[in-house]
Amino acid sequence: MRNKVLKLDEAASWVHSGASISIGGFTSQRHPTALLRELIRQRVKDLTVYYHSAGSDLDLLIGAGCVHRLEGAYLADGVFAPIAPNFRRFVESSRIEFEDYTNAAMMARFAAGAMGLPFLPTRSMLGTDMMPGRQGSSVEPGKTAGRSGCKALEMACPFSGELLALVPAVRSDFCLLHVQQASANGLLRIEGQEFLDVQQALAATTVIATCEELVDEEILRREPERNRIPSFAVHAVVPVPFGAHPHGVHNHYDYDPEHLRRYNTAAKSDAAFAEYLEQFVFGAASHDAYLQAVGGPERLAQLCPCQGVGYNPLLKRSV
């Protein structure tokens, strides 16, 4: 078995400017946020990001000026941000390229990439302004993911005649994930919802997984039905406890409402967000320094699950 364990800065240095990536997790859950902060510190630029329902993980990269192009479905953070603030500002001021799909369409695109297929059909997207040729589409040949330069294509099923939308596969250079447990060899265990992590990982050339716990592979192999991503699909493993903060990790810690509010307030303007980055990314030059900056062990203890559920029922969430 190979040892794929790297340090956070070493793993981040793999991701070059101009790369295409996808990020695991969903809105406020299980993002590899510590790894994203390290990408920002290393001044990675011009990323193309494929996503389904992202939150302040991707919004952080956008606000830090790391992203050139977006293809995805949703960027917001539940109660904390009805619209992801940096995303909104960057789109409204034409600072970023974007192409809209639906969650089902992005699921089909990642699944196609994972299955080695060039496209998949979906019943979604039909009748919406996301379809090319409709008023709302912004398709420009050569700029979309498909080699044909086509965002999506309406087609009658050759068997039944039913109308379907075909969407091109995503094949990204990197997939960045955060999971509960990993072995040094890269076998990954996910607890709670998988979101779309498995398909995103298998649709990427290189997978970097940060994890809460590095565990002996023999322990993971005792319950193979709980393991989700095989080691041959994973290229780097980085143990990063609290590596998703301010987002939550089922069975490990809750999302941090205080910090997410702070983030979403700061992300509403360039000036305030520059200060946020200075305080929590550049000024806190390591993950340990970041955890101190957000309140240290005392705050982190308040996020830990109790009462037999995978979150903290006593956490103060409303303002």
């Binding site: 329902s53 789109v91 409204e92 034409s94 969650n103 997207m125």
Partner: peptide
């Protein structure tokens, strides 16, 4: 998705479909 006539530069950019269009269809 977005408010305003210019799709590439909306007056207000909204979060996007997420699963909404899928559920609608």
């Amino acid at each position: 998705t977005g408010i305003g006539p210019d799709r590439q530069r909306p007056a207000v950019r909204l979060p996007g479909s997420g699963g909404s269009a899928d559920v609608a269809a």
